[in-house]
Design a protein around this nucleic acid. Structure first.
Ligand SMILES: [Mn+2]
Ligand SMILES: [Mn+2]
Ligand SMILES: [Mn+2]
Ligand SMILES: [Mn+2]
Lengths: 214, 214
DNA sequence: AAAATAATTTAGGCATACCTAAAAGAGGAG
DNA sequence: CTCCTCTTTTAGGTATGCCTAAATTATTTT
C-alpha cells in the first residue's frame, strides 16, 4: 500500500463504494487521473484484496478495503482537529496538511492522537470521524437549500473545498451557528438567512453545500 | 524533491556534508542502498542544485542543500518532542514515526509545532534542533567512554538507534541523569557508573554512544 | 435493431528509483 | 612505477504509476 493507492481507496469510499459499484470515470474525475490509469490501478487493488472489480461495470470496496479507507478518513479528520485546535490553523487551511499526514499515521499514532484530542466525533467541517472499527456517528441532516422561509436550524456540516470554505469564512458562517431563513428566491435564486443578527445572502449552490439539523 | 531525496540530504548532512566531501560508499551504507544507485541519485541532486558533486571524490551540500537538510532535521526533532511530551510515546519509539512525519511537514506546520512546543532546543535524544535559519545551539560535550574514575557529569545526548535506546531504557538511563564513574576496566572493558543511587555496568561500546557535559 | 455516443480497457511510452554485473578510476604496497 | 585492491561509475534491467491513442464494450438515441 502506498499513499497513491490509499487516496484511491479514500475516493472510492467517499463516492459510496462501501455499498454501490462505482464507475471508473467517477474515480478518475475525483482524483484528476486518466480513466486508463484508474483501470490499471483497480486491477492492482483487486489483486491486493482491497476492491471487488467487475470490468466495465465498476468496483466496490471489500471488507478489508472498507476498513482501510475508514482508517484513512479517521486519520485525516483527527489531524484536522489537531491543527485547528492546537496549532492555530483556520477552517480552510487544515485540509491540505491532513491530506499528507493521513498517510504517515500508524494505528498507534492515530490512537494516541485521538486520546490527546479527547475522542472527537466530528472534524472541523462536520464530517463524522469513524471509530477504530469503522463505525460512524450519524445524525439526521438536510441541505440548507431544502429549508423553507421562517425555518430555524443549526449548521452541522459543509463541503470541504478550499474556495468554498473561504467563501463561508468571509460570511462568518461556522459549524454550530444557528440561523433563520428569511427569504428564498424562486428558480434556484439566492437564499437570505439571519445569523448572529446579521443578514447573509447565499447563492443556491452554496446552500446545497451546507447541511443543517433536520 | 521527494521523501527519498530528502533522506539522501539528511544522511549527507549527518555524515558531515556541510563541510567535507562525503564518499559515495558512506551514503550507500547509511541508506542501505547500492553504490550504483547512490551515484545516479547524486547526479540528479546536483542538477537540482542541492549538492556539489566531484565524481570519484565525493559530494558536499550546497547552501540550498544545507538549508533543506537542516529543515528536515528540525521537522524530525520537533515531531519527536511532540510525540514524547504529548502523545505518551517513549524515548525509543519516537524516531520511526518522526522519520515519516518529517517529509510531510510544511514550513507553516513546523513553525506552528515549534510554537506549540514552546521552542524546544533539543530532541528527546539530545540532538540540537536547528532554528529556521539552520543555526544550532551547541554545548560542549565529551563521550562517557572518555571519562576517568571518580568523574561526575550529566547525560546530554545518545545515539539514536532503536536497540541501543531500549538498552538504555532498561538501565534507567535518561537525558539529564547525573552520575559518577565508579570503575573502568582496561582494554575497552566495561565501565561502572552510579546513577540515582544504583550501580550500572555499561559496555565500552555503549559508553561511546553516550555524550555528557564536558 | 442499428447507429451514434460514451465509458472502459488495452497497447505502447515515459519518468522515477531501485537493482546486479561489468568497466573504469584512484590510491596504496612493493 | 606498476600492480592490486577498493571505490565509483556505467550499462542494462525491473517495478511502479502515470500518460495518450487506439480498440473494445456498454448505453442511449433514432
Ligand atoms: Mn491524501
Ligand atoms: Mn474535514
Ligand atoms: Mn525520513
Ligand atoms: Mn532524536
Amino acid at each position: 500500500m502506498t499513499p497513491n493507492k490509499e487516496d484511491y481507496l479514500k475516493a472510492i469510499n467517499k463516492l459510496g463504494g462501501c455499498d454501490d459499484l462505482i464507475a471508473n470515470k467517477k474515480i478518475a474525475d475525483a482524483l484528476h487521473i486518466s480513466p486508463a490509469s484508474v483501470s490499471e490501478m483497480l486491477t492492482k487493488l483487486e489483486k491486493e484484496g482491497a476492491v471487488e472489480y467487475v470490468p466495465y461495470h465498476g468496483i466496490r470496496l471489500t471488507p478489508a478495503g472498507k476498513q482501510q479507507s475508514a482508517a484513512l478518513l479517521r486519520n485525516h479528520r483527527l489531524w484536522e482537529v489537531f491543527l485547528l485546535r492546537h496549532l492555530g490553523y483556520s477552517w480552510s487551511e487544515v485540509h491540505e496538511e491532513a491530506e499528507l499526514l493521513e498517510h504517515v499515521t500508524s494505528p498507534r499514532l492515530a490512537q494516541s492522537l485521538d486520546a490527546f484530542l479527547k475522542h472527537p466525533d466530528f472534524c472541523p467541517h462536520g464530517a463524522a470521524i469513524p471509530s477504530t472499527d469503522g463505525k460512524i456517528k450519524a445524525i439526521p441532516l438536510r441541505k440548507l437549500a431544502q429549508m423553507s422561509v421562517q425555518d430555524t436550524s443549526t449548521i452541522r456540516k459543509v463541503t470541504e473545498e478550499k474556495e468554498f470554505l473561504n467563501y463561508l469564512q468571509e460570511r462568518n458562517i461556522q459549524i454550530g451557528s444557528s440561523f433563520t431563513v428569511l427569504s428564498i428566491e424562486p428558480y434556484e435564486g439566492p437564499i437570505t438567512i439571519k445569523l448572529a443578527d446579521k443578514q447573509i445572502v447565499l447563492s443556491y449552490k452554496a446552500a446545497c453545500h451546507i447541511e443543517v439539523d433536520a
